[in-house]
Design a protein around this nucleic acid. Structure first.
Lengths: 341, 341
DNA sequence: CTGAAAGCGCTTACAG
DNA sequence: CTGAAAGCGCTTACAG
């Protein structure tokens, strides 16, 4: 096998005429070595095709060069661009991405927690707010962790997110400005931090604008197309119906609109629908989806940057940093002005 | 720091009253150790909360327990479910996923190739057919590699894929069966292996059915929503227009349909459109998209399984295995029967 | 600025 | 079935 003959640091040292210590320094801390020595080492490394053995480096230096990214559901395209931002930022800093799907590992949580130990990674980016953090607490090692988008229910860890309540209020305010006073809401799953904050924003804005809250118009969902389909069916069965629906994410909105369409109900002519996230498909939907834009790639980049900073600073997870990135209302074709009563 | 006090194999050995060698065996090859010894070791490991140091194991055993997955573009949701299948399968086999976005690393290909070395990973799953494989050839280490979905242009590596030409013929045949004889095609990017095989399938089927091929009706795209939008604009500018369009993927089809809709052209009433992939949104599009179903998760699982098998067997990359997974025509609402001339 | 030497925490022939 | 011992390939105080 080729790797049996792979050059070691010793080979480079011999060819460069220096010690292995010097080779090591020239490669990882070039500024601590004399220019000529450095050049000789680099030349020798190039000539031999030397590649560092990471396992050896990691064992010795007690770092891994890898970051674990815990994703709730890799099959969900919402996460794609967040991951892209994370990967891009970590790669630029010489860090690898260890990707773990927390849902698929749900049956065996110990699989996830294996990753939380020092010998696997130098830090964690967690996109899953429902992760059983007590297990993390109980585990012996406390790697630096940063949450992104979601956060742990105790909210006692660093996180990068948007202001979900405020963003939900933006959506409701838009519907009200378009003359709607009968407004429904399709939530995410109960217990999810995004559901509770977006739902809270909905209620706040309705109350602030003195609009009746009708319990029958609030549906629980789970952020999927199917949740939207199910909610649309409930809407169709209603005696009195809201004229506008706010969906906790775009996928739910797509499900709603398509199921209504299948039943001869037009969006936005018969009912207005607004989503949340502004995933790429939103602009090519028919009608183009009015939604709240969430800066997904920027969230990933910010989370990765924060984690890197905290690893470098040896920051304690108890020392919380929380940043909010701005969202934006994007008005497209799925909402429509109606005459106020 | 907690990890400084983390128990080592030595601590477990002392408590269990055995040697470190026995602890090591009891943990990784339990069947080679007497039942009572094994139980004592496991109990001691449990009591101390012992976690293996992977760097040490990797250094010693020359394995990493990680697989590199090269993804052309993490921001593209098409890959989500393939990745989910890969992650799930590798996790079940105790392997980690090192995720690398080849596009983001395009400016610095050496970043990608760092991952191809033995000390980083035990194998590679590559979703990017355009990877500069000569660099892989030239590199000193030849890790087992399996391509998934795409493949290298020389087609001289193991791969898991669908039969793209056949699947494209399925799409064209469907249009013809629906009475269409004026058929256009929106391709992927030139040079891409999927483009060339799907495009070839289109031509084969048109010829086989004795249908005129009109160059003006063949558009180059790049698998994005925007490619569909651009093609729709070209279609609108045409003097004589095809009555049906086959798109090399679903995103392109969404772009086409939405841009046509914006210009008052209805799908399927004015023109039929068929996609390729059957991503989740296809069924909730308006109209629901007729398309070719591609088993994305199964492709990921099969690729991971094959790679694992090859790593275990120490298989040479020159010993090629290629499997095709079946696709299926899914007829929904975006294509429509027309009177034959 | 450089080198000699210890040691990171495991695994694995080898011997018994 | 088990143990003593070597060694994987690096990095890092320490001394000069």
């Amino acid at each position: 096998m080729a790797q049996d003959t792979a050059p070691k640091i010793k080979d480079v040292a011999r060819i460069a005429g220096v010690s292995t210590a010097t080779v090591s320094r020239a490669l990882s801390k070039p500024e601590t070595v004399a220019k000529e020595t450095r050049e000789a080492v680099l030349e020798a490394a190039r000539k031999t095709g030397y590649r560092i053995n990471l396992a050896a480096r990691n064992l010795r230096s007690n770092r891994t060069g890898a970051i674990v990214v815990l994703v709730p559901n890799l099959g969900n395209p919402f996460f794609s661009q967040i991951l892209a931002g994370i990967e891009q930022t970590l790669a630029r800093n010489g860090l690898s991405v260890l990707m773990v799907d927390t849902k698929h590992s749900q049956a065996r949580p110990e699989l996830v927690f294996e990753y939380l130990h020092h010998s696997r990674a130098d830090g964690i980016i967690c996109l899953d707010g429902s992760i059983a953090m007590t297990q993390l607490e109980n585990s012996r090692v406390r790697l630096p962790i940063v949450f992104a988008c979601e956060w742990h229910e105790t909210d006692s860890y660093p996180s990068i997110r948007i202001d979900n309540a405020h963003s939900a209020r933006l959506a409701i305010r838009h519907l009200i400005e378009f003359g709607h006073r009968d407004i429904g809401y399709i939530d995410g799953p109960a217990g999810n931090v995004l559901s509770s904050t977006r739902g809270a924003g909905v209620l706040q804005e309705l109350k602030a604008q003195d609009i009746d809250i009708v319990q029958d118009w609030f549906f629980e969902g789970d952020f999927t197309l199917n949740a939207g389909v199910a909610a649309a069916q409930k809407w169709l069965a209603l005696q009195t119906r809201p004229t506008a629906l706010f969906c906790a994410n775009d996928e739910t909105a797509f499900g709603v609109i398509s199921e209504l369409h299948r039943n001869g109900v037009s969006v936005p002519d018969d009912v207005s629908v607004i989503g949340f996230d502004d995933i790429d498909f939103a602009q090519c939907f028919i009608p183009p989806l009015t939604t709240i834009h969430q800066p997904r790639e920027a969230l990933g980049i910010a989370a990765a940057d924060l984690l890197i900073k905290r690893i470098d600073q040896n920051a304690d997870n108890a020392n919380i940093v929380q940043n909010s990135l701005p969202t934006e209302l994007i008005i497209r074709g799925s909402t429509r002005r109606i005459a106020s009563r």
